[in-house]
């Protein structure tokens, strides 16, 4: 008897489905169609308080290099048809330790405001201030402190080595073929001593021969440019990677100690250059300088990636946007 009861309950599902089947079907399809048409996304305008028409000042000062600046106005981020334009009638005043030392003058060749290096001589710890004004706009200001000059104590070619170069070529159907060969490099070591406290640097590598000069990229396996650069991320292993133009780093991994930067330069003399010499400029930069370039480069690098986190670009311009920062630099040459 119990088995019979269980059997009856078992076939009940079939009965339930049959008796209600038509009702379910009709309602289901009605609502499904309604859902398909109604659940499309709706879009409405969303108001955002934008910050256009604010002064933007980008200015750098080096005791031995002078000061340079550009001035422009900010735009609303969605002003697609407009591109920010430089302002040529701004007034920029430079103060050293609260004393006005000069006004920037507009250089029509460079499209920048400049001050000659004869007026910017300074010592470590001197505080510079810039005040920028444009008729009808809010006046902005910023300060920076001159960092200590850090000497390059030694620079030399430590070795010549061969590094593996990966390349991709394509077959007749357009499919990639991965190849690798070896290329000779000079291993160059640059030695300096990091002062106590928090310090930031920028290493600029350029070449110069009889007919030309310019920036060059270098290869390195020194993790200082990734681990030390708190605003960047990358390969933390000892793999080689290439750095171009400006190599920013902090002293987080060698604070207060002697540091030897290792740079690998490809042996191209005689191929592209005629008896070149390489110039290494070690800039000891202010924290604003480092934070600005670290973040602005990061933002520029991620603009095409919709999955990338947003980058808040550093600015120290009060009342506006941009950067006012300083550096103290030393240069060393090496002939290959």
């Amino acid at each position: 008897m119990e088995l019979l009861n269980q059997y009856l309950k078992g076939v009940m599902i079939n009965y339930i489905l049959k008796s209600e089947y038509k009702k379910i079907l009709i309602i289901h399809f009605s609502l499904f169609i309604l859902l398909v048409f109604s659940s499309c996304q709706k879009t409405v305008y969303f108001d955002v308080e934008t910050q256009e028409n604010k002064l933007v000042v980008n200015s750098f000062i080096g005791p031995e290099s002078g000061a340079i600046a550009d001035v422009s106005l900010s735009l609303a981020p969605l002003d697609y048809d407009e591109y920010p334009e430089y302002i040529t009638n701004a007034t920029l005043q430079l103060f050293k330790n609260e004393i006005l030392i000069a006004n920037y003058t507009y250089n029509e060749t460079l499209y920048k405001y400049t001050i000659d290096n004869s007026l910017t001589a300074a010592n470590e710890g001197d505080v510079f201030k810039v005040i920028a004004s444009v008729p009808g706009k809010e006046t902005v200001s910023a300060i920076t402190t001159i960092p200590e000059k850090v000497e390059i104590e030694n620079i030399h070619i430590a070795d010549t080595i061969e590094l593996i170069n990966h390349e991709v070529i394509y077959d007749s159907l357009g499919y990639p073929i991965f190849t690798e060969d070896t290329i000779p490099y000079y291993k160059i070591e640059i030695e300096f001593t990091d002062p106590a406290g928090e310090n930031y640097y920028n290493l600029i590598t350029t070449y110069e021969d009889a007919s030309a000069s310019g920036n060059v990229c270098f290869t390195t396996n020194d993790p200082v440019y990734t681990l030390g650069d708190e605003f960047s991320f990358g390969d933390s292993e000892n793999d080689f990677y290439t750095v171009c133009d400006n190599a920013y780093f902090s002293d987080i991994t060698f604070n207060g100690t002697k540091k030897i930067l290792t740079v690998y330069l490809i042996q191209v003399d005689g191929v592209f250059f005629d008896d070149p010499k390489y110039i290494f400029t070690l800039q000891h930069v202010s924290s604003e300088y480092y934070k600005y370039f670290s973040t602005v480069n990061l933002q520029n690098g991620g603009t095409d990636n919709p999955f990338a986190q947003i980058v808040t670009v550093f600015s120290n311009i009060e009342g506006g946007f941009g950067i006012f920062s300083s550096y103290n630099e030393i240069t060393a040459e090496i002939e290959l």
């Binding site: 550009d70 670009v313 941009g322």
Partner: peptide, 28 residues
């Protein structure tokens, strides 16, 4: 949410977008 509220010229003449910090804005 994080949305830019301004854009301006960077040191290389590139466009820089200004956010009022991460998650600095509120949806309705």
């Amino acid at each position: 949410i994080s949305i830019p509220v301004a854009k301006y010229l960077g040191t290389y003449g590139q466009e820089v977008y200004y956010y009022e910090g991460r998650n600095g804005y509120r949806m309705n």
